[in-house]
Design a protein around this nucleic acid. Structure first.
Lengths: 209, 209, 209, 209
DNA sequence: AATGCTCCAGCTGAGC
DNA sequence: GCTCAGCTGGAGCATT
């Protein structure tokens, strides 16, 4: 009889199957370690490489959840004045400009940044930078962000271009004002209810020509 | 005699001291959990709140290390075409434009983005967006990034403004070309040797007041 | 108005409360580390000390669950011939001798080892050890354990005294036979369904004074 | 040229190799999970099964280290009165009876319990249990352990047989006295300096067949 | 509400 | 001696 005929045999079989699998797993783990060591030896930053691996292995729902969390965290950091000179990313900026997307995109036409550009009746006319930018200009930009927020200007219309250190300060001011306007928490600060999970990892590699 | 007179007593004392401390620690852990639960109940995103807490508790060296890793990871992601529409942050852009900063700024004049702006003889004259931006325009922007990189244009001179979806694609093309130029790994892709550690956490809260 | 009047203020307050608590928690963690370091410096084994701390902090239900798991693990190890010369502990021996206790003791009269002693009509008359005990004697003891199990002898009646290396071998033989008797898993090999939890940690220190 | 000719290609290759390996590793992890689930479905205790797997995968040095830690922990627990009715195991008993073994056994004749039995001029003549064993008898046994320790009796000569609840109490008294004798920590309470490591996992399965 | 999984930090051991 | 990587244990999160 081929099946395990007694619990003692069965237990031994279970143990041995697991032990074998664990050995295989450990072997692969060692291989991974080797690849990282090789990368390190060639001058790559292992920590950054790990990030690319993790991103590559994300499912689409994982990616969406991560991006949403990052966007909210940026809004929180901005309102707390903790941006450290890094302006809001586009995802956070768009989230702040509108209520959180009700759904990932009803008809498969989600997140088209082109819309935002198209809607603007006229480009915000970026500011010409002054001769020098010091702490006073930074603070002025933050204050101006507060005022612009109160006057209804949207956060996507930050007047300072990428690369201008005042851009982050204006964002901070705007987000702070956004969180101070009313008694209730702004909708972009809330997480969307839930997402289904279990999707398979990224099928295709995005952007590879 | 007041001191522990025997190993048995001493052992009991050690055990009890640790048990007491562990109980205190657990109590505080429960308090923390309560605060997060309260935050969640009020509608905040707990994961994002955790990020603000972690940032606030970072020491300056922690922050520097994190920012460096993030910058390198963005360069890697860009060269792999994994930016997902998010352009390079300023830190990554500046890192890519120049060899990694030799030191945190020898004379207290670090990281002044104004320099970059001042050096530019003329602003890159941002592109006027076409009527619609579709996949073809994105691919064209990526290809243009490659060409611009080969023609010596620096990555800080991305011609597309923040908010334009072609901005990320141009970055990807530029970074891909940067990694394809020579046989050797580009200096911005390498981690700086080391940093001293053990500094105290952020003393003052940035940007408040 | 004393309450947080805006989400921005509230968010800052939440962050700061958590940061403060985290700092306290870290401080206590450092104290604990110091005590362990002190213990190590005085010659104690830190790992063993950790075990005493963990035991001391167990709730009664934790302890019961741990002891049950350990007992079952010993039975598994015995049936697999992995005892390494360590005989079954009393808990495992009693578990193997009877179906798992239906309940922790309905009328507060649990786990009385005296019963076992009282039931035995006559003590098992410990074996006089031979002049030398070698591998043959060990194997003989294991085989005898198998036979004794098949002839209905209970595992609490191991004929070899504590300290005799054949004691573990007899246990192994007995457990192996117990697991080979029928097609079904022996009741002592199963975990009890469930236990209520949430009880407070050990109130009094057992056996002191 | 077949080798990676540019850092960008090389980086992509490294990432993909790791991703592939991680997928394999995850797949095996899922298989392991399945086996445990199967075991659980058949009535086995998963936690106990995990212990058998871990034991099976231990190298000999791992096993030695674990046994030493367990022995020391038992001595600590005994001296603190935390044995909970479980007498010392043989390893702890032998460790307490003699200074820690200077080496794993110089001539390949280590740890032979038979020696201990052979050395004893006369067996300790196990105690005949009284009619009933209650808390008073337990306390008396503990006190007797203290006295026996002070009168030079060794811990391997516990007068109570396995299965007698007074056996653990006597051990506790003896260990407590051992830790109270002098100002210095008893040698069995100390961990041995170090062991060489890197040995391969258990080559053969002990006791099978 | 309880359980199982995943992630993360803290600790341990090696290596320059 | 200090740094660093591996790892174990615990905590958080999602799920049923």
């Amino acid at each position: 009889m081929l099946t395990n005929r007694s619990p003692a045999d069965e237990l031994r079989s279970l143990r041995d199957r697991i032990v074998r699998l664990e050995e295989d797993k450990k072997s692969i783990g060692d291989d991974i370690k080797d690849v990282y060591a090789e990368a390190k030896g060639r001058g790559y930053d292992v920590k950054a490489l790990r990030i690319t691996v993790k991103r590559q292995m994300e499912s689409v729902s994982d990616k969406r959840a991560r991006q949403e969390t990052e966007a909210i965290a940026e809004l929180y950091l901005a309102s707390l004045g903790m941006l450290d000179g890094t302006p809001l990313g586009e995802a956070a900026r768009k989230r702040a400009a509108a209520p959180p997307p009700s759904e990932p995109g009803p008809d498969g036409e989600p997140e088209q940044e082109g819309d935002g550009t198209a809607e603007r009746p006229e480009p915000p006319e970026p500011e010409a930078p002054p001769a020098t930018i010091g702490p006073e200009e930074i603070d002025a930009a933050r204050e101006r962000g507060r005022e612009d927020a109160r006057s209804g200007k949207r956060i996507v219309d930050n007047p300072f271009v990428a690369g201008d250190p005042r851009r982050a300060a204006w964002d901070e001011g705007h987000c702070e004002a956004m969180g101070s306007d009313g008694m209730d928490i702004p909708p972009p600060w809330r997480r969307l209810p839930k997402k289904r999970k279990g999707e398979e990892p990224e099928p295709a590699e995005g952007g590879e020509g």
